[in-house]
């Protein structure tokens, strides 16, 4: 029997005809968070492995992007709030059930940490740099002494941050497209890959780029696997999730997703990286830019499409 449905007396801004309450700020925030997480993770990893010399860009120079990305990300999040005067309320309670809450707290710890990390490399980055107050000099010496501890902390927090960017969405079971636990790992891996892309773009060392692109190829492989998995899961699930998957399998997001995210954002750059590894000369900025752009589009598509998927009406 065919059913037709009318909702009368309702045309609420941003809610009807379909939900559109999160705009560009949230996907940008998720992208910058993932990017920062990626850079921090590898900086920590290679420092702990004792590769500070060989992987200089990874451990030192690329991390200068992290505080910038995090501050911009937080600013984007702030712009998205509709009751901005009460922003501080985020930091008067800890609510573990709410991803928004523990994400905000994670950022509260990871942002200062990234500033300290960068500060310990200031003198190497800018010859002749000195801290204006002697207390800062002492603090720097202390931070340098405990760099390894910071590296461990950074790696762990980076994983939390990376997973959080996915869980922020997957915790909403009201939006069938988001309600899958694959989103956590998928956003983490994608974030790590965009982080690598940024580092590779900055790196001048052939050796370093080679190491990083090998890791990146594996990450992209994992990402593709997770994407296939995501859709298999949807198609084997309930009606609302099958409908959610249809948005990408013939529906309005099909081209954007498969062309810009999967082909141009994952498969193509991975092929270029492989070609580079076997000896062809490929300007690194091409695959790097494609990965970054693909990651950004991915988050935009997921946030927008997710809001369209629903249980009723």
């Amino acid at each position: 029997m065919k059913e037709e449905l009318f909702v009368s007396g309702r045309d609420i801004p941003f809610i009807d005809p379909y939900l559109n309450i999160w705009h560009w700020q949230i996907p940008l925030y998720l992208f910058l968070g993932g990017l920062a997480a990626g850079i921090m993770f590898f900086a920590g990893l290679f420092l702990i492995m004792g590769k500070e010399k060989e992987m200089e860009t990874t451990v030192k120079w690329a991390t200068f992007l992290v505080p910038v990305a995090l501050v911009l990300g937080l600013f984007a999040l702030f712009l998205d709030l509709k009751h901005q005067l009460y922003f501080w309320r985020l930091y008067t309670t800890v609510r573990l059930e709410s991803p928004m809450s523990w994400g905000a707290w994670t950022l509260m710890f990871i942002t200062p940490l990234s500033f300290v990390w960068v500060a310990t490399y200031m003198k190497e980055a800018i010859p002749g740099w000195h801290w204006r107050f002697s207390i800062l000099e002492k603090a720097e010496a202390l931070a340098i002494k405990y760099r390894k501890v910071m590296a461990w902390l950074m790696m762990m927090l980076a994983i939390v941050l990376g997973v959080y960017t996915g869980i922020l969405l997957s915790a909403f079971n009201a939006r069938p497209l988001w309600n899958t636990s694959i989103l956590g790992p998928l956003f983490l891996v994608s974030g790590l890959s965009t982080g690598l892309a940024a580092i590779m773009w900055m790196s001048k060392s052939h050796y370093e780029r080679k190491v990083l692109s090998k890791i990146d190829i594996i990450l992209i492989g994992v990402e593709l696997f997770l994407i296939v998995h995501l859709f298999m899961g949807f198609l084997a699930a309930t009606e609302v999730q099958i409908e959610a998957a249809q948005l990408f399998l013939g529906g309005q997001f099909t081209t954007t997703f498969w062309v810009f995210v999967v082909i141009l954002g994952l498969i193509f750059p991975a092929l270029l990286e492989i070609l580079e590894l076997v000896g062809y000369k490929i300007p690194i900025w091409i695959p790097a830019l494609m990965i970054l752009f693909g990651g950004l589009v991915f988050r935009f598509v997921m946030v927008e499409a997710g809001q369209i998927t629903r249980f009723l009406y």
Partner: peptide, 8 residues
């Protein structure tokens, strides 16, 4: 704070 999480 108007974060919209509950709306989602």
């Amino acid at each position: 704070i108007g974060c919209g999480a509950c709306i989602q």
